[in-house]
Design a protein around this nucleic acid. Structure first.
Lengths: 148, 148
DNA sequence: GCGTATCCTACCTTCCAGGTAGGTATTCAC
DNA sequence: GTGAATACCTACCTGGAAGGTAGGATACGC
């Protein structure tokens, strides 16, 4: 489903949000706190940086900070920065306008018979990811509705 | 996300539903119609059979039929028969009661900081899959064909 | 200029999705 | 009963990617 890239990356973001003070947080301290390999996290955090989700300061006492307030960062941004485009199966993609396409349609063939299903699944995933912000993640706040 | 197992399997089911007459449909004819490798489909259809979703008749003029009416078969059943348990990331599972668990919780550790997110994503996926029946898939019925 | 940190590129290894192969058992038509 | 068609079963193969490692270059604080 989602790989550990998404999992680890979300945890990086959550960690940054939780320690969102003045000073940047060194990736080494995150790796230690979360018990994850530093060298691997470096790859992930670079994706987050290139996506404009975190900012970095190099050198001594450097580290990372959120590029925007946690309330304004959605999980859809985080996950797609890490995993690339979100599609439940290969042939389903979304073009820049947000129209969901089946790859087979493109070359004049008829759509997958199951397009309806995968587009709905994709919609559900994307909507959910867009609906959860980083700040919600770090506040186990009075959400507690219908705890499935 | 989902592998081709789910994609192909759903197409098998859709094909069976579309040709749901008296006679069983040979897998070879499905493979040909869908342009998929027969030998691989055999693996998939066995999973569907063991899950009680299709029935088989061996020998000449044998083949497969739906085990239940298409309206009563949900995509959740089909996909989980093919892919196994549906979880957006490894540490999220659902116990027999349907309670969503984080693997880390089990061993006395605290839950992933991001559990909230993944449980919601899982919920959205499962609810969507449960909501789409096989019969809906094969009838592009009364759905606005215009805007896609 | 030294230590600390980010940044960058290349590589390595394990796993498994996706597929192949070959055989056996069952049923039908004749 | 024979042969063709079909489901059923088990084992194997293979490319690519997930997940991780290595090593250095670059920037910053003191």
């Amino acid at each position: 489903m989602f790989s550990t890239k998404a999992e680890y990356g979300v945890r990086i973001m959550a960690h940054l949000a939780a320690h969102d003070g003045t000073a940047p947080v060194a990736l080494g301290s995150i790796a230690e706190a979360e018990a994850l390999p530093l060298a691997y996290l470096e790859h992930l955090v670079q994706r987050l940086r290139r996506a404009g989700l975190v900012e970095s300061r190099r050198g001594a006492h450097g580290g990372y900070t959120l590029a925007r307030p946690a309330e304004e960062i959605t999980m859809a941004e985080v996950v797609s920065a890490l995993e690339g485009e979100i599609a439940p199966i290969e042939c389903i993609t979304a073009d820049p306008d947000g129209r969901v396409m089946c790859a087979r349609e493109a070359n004049g063939e008829r759509a997958c018979p199951s397009k309806l299903l995968w587009t709905r699944v994709q919609g559900a995933i994307v909507r959910t990811l867009e609906d959860v912000t980083l700040s919600e993640l770090i506040r186990p706040v009075a959400r507690k509705k219908a705890a499935v």
